[in-house]
Amino acid sequence: MGSVRIAAPEVEIVAPRDDREIAAYAALAHASFGTEIPDIGYLRPHALTRVATENGRVLAGAMGIPVPQFFGGRAVPSACVSAVCVAPEARGRGIAGRLMAELVRGLRDEHGAAAVSLWTPSVGLYRRWGWGTIATPCRWVLPAAQLREFRRTTAPGLGIVEGVHAFQQEEARAWNGPVRRPAWWWEWKRATAPATTYHLTDTSGEVTGYLTATTAPVKPWGHDMFVHELAARDRQSLHTLIGFLGEHASQVQDIHLGPTATPVLSGLLDHLSQFSARARTWYPWMLALVDPVEAVRARGWDEDLDVDLVLSVADPQGRTTGYRLSVHGGAGRLETTGDNPDVELTSGHLAAWYAGAFGSPARMRVVGVRGRPAALRRLSRTTDDREPWLPDTF
């Protein structure tokens, strides 16, 4: 997890020992985020939780949800970190670093996580701990009336029908990062963040797309619609869902396309007769490879790849580890080696490469990855077959 300031020895990092400490953590999260965080109670049976206590008082808390994430089309043992908070008067003592180190250690050692994700505005802090920035999504806002330009061939149905969950998981495999959602994930979202779901099916009844949305009133009249999830099998299905949103224009002023909605939406904006979209960035998605060897072994790889490269990976303390990356016949291996490196990078760079965030050798060079041009090209090609996208919030 990197170098951190050492907190006072009387501060303990522990699993919550009773309901009182859980309640204190929830109250601290409420004060930190300005809103109630019902996830802390709901996810308690499914998550690994750690709190920092001093003289019986909870000073900080964080939780990690052990769930697989898709990388290269395969589900990799992973975890999602949520609700990280530290009391304002306890900040600056290194408590956050100790808390995260203990949480990540537990996720790796107790639950087998090879990669850990989180959404955070504190990118500098996590970068110092060895995390890499994978994507910074945008929230698009468009006038509802403009979306009427997208013609729909059918009307979406209301509610989640059989096949929506399977469709979401199949679509998730096409990207790097989506969670392989367990059954309780859907129940959790319905309980803590209720939204209306619409689905599309073809003539055979097969699901071809879906979206989830909520509305909120705006002054002086009407309301805005917020799209939290949107996925479609093909262009026609996507246009139908977008056109359906436009049909709400009699009462809806703006459509807010959430940062976790499908990333291909930005390309659809070119189809508008007049571009009037507004964009606002959201928290970045950051990733840490807490077990790089297992992460590479578990990931999916293109069967046509034939790569052998030596990587020198620097951790946040400046220590370097040599790895030989071998990808052959759809299988990847990462083994320690003392050979001279072809590519030099940090642990944060390694996470970004793993998720396909670089895309090109030019971007790798700009962020500080060093190596011969041919080696950088070979490394970037190993993970550029899928784009990074994390459609899940936690």
Results as ranks from 00 to 15, higher is better:
M1T: 10
I6C: 03
V11I: 15
A15R: 15
P16L: 11
D18L: 09
E21V: 03
L28K: 00
S32V: 10
S32R: 12
P38G: 11
D39W: 13
H46S: 06
A47T: 11
V51R: 01
N55F: 11
P66L: 12
Q69K: 08
F71P: 00
F71V: 15
P77L: 12
C80D: 06
A90L: 11
V123S: 09
G132T: 06
I134G: 02
W140L: 09
W140D: 01
A144H: 12
Q146M: 11
R151M: 08
T154Q: 14
L158P: 00
G159W: 10
G163P: 06
H165R: 13
W175D: 01
R180Q: 13
P182D: 09
T196W: 11
T196Y: 08
T196M: 12
L200R: 00
L200G: 00
G209E: 08
T214Q: 13
V218A: 07
P220H: 07
H223G: 08
V227Y: 08
R233V: 06
Q236D: 08
L238A: 12
I242M: 12
F244P: 02
S250A: 15
Q251M: 15
Q253D: 04
H256V: 14
L257C: 07
L272G: 01
F275G: 00
T281F: 14
M286K: 03
M286I: 13
P292Y: 10
E294N: 11
R299N: 02
D302G: 09
D308I: 11
D315M: 07
G318M: 04
R324F: 02
G330R: 04
T336F: 09
D342I: 01
G348Q: 02
Y354C: 02
Y354G: 02
A357M: 05
R365W: 15
V367W: 14
G368L: 12
V369C: 00
T383K: 01
L390T: 11
D392E: 05
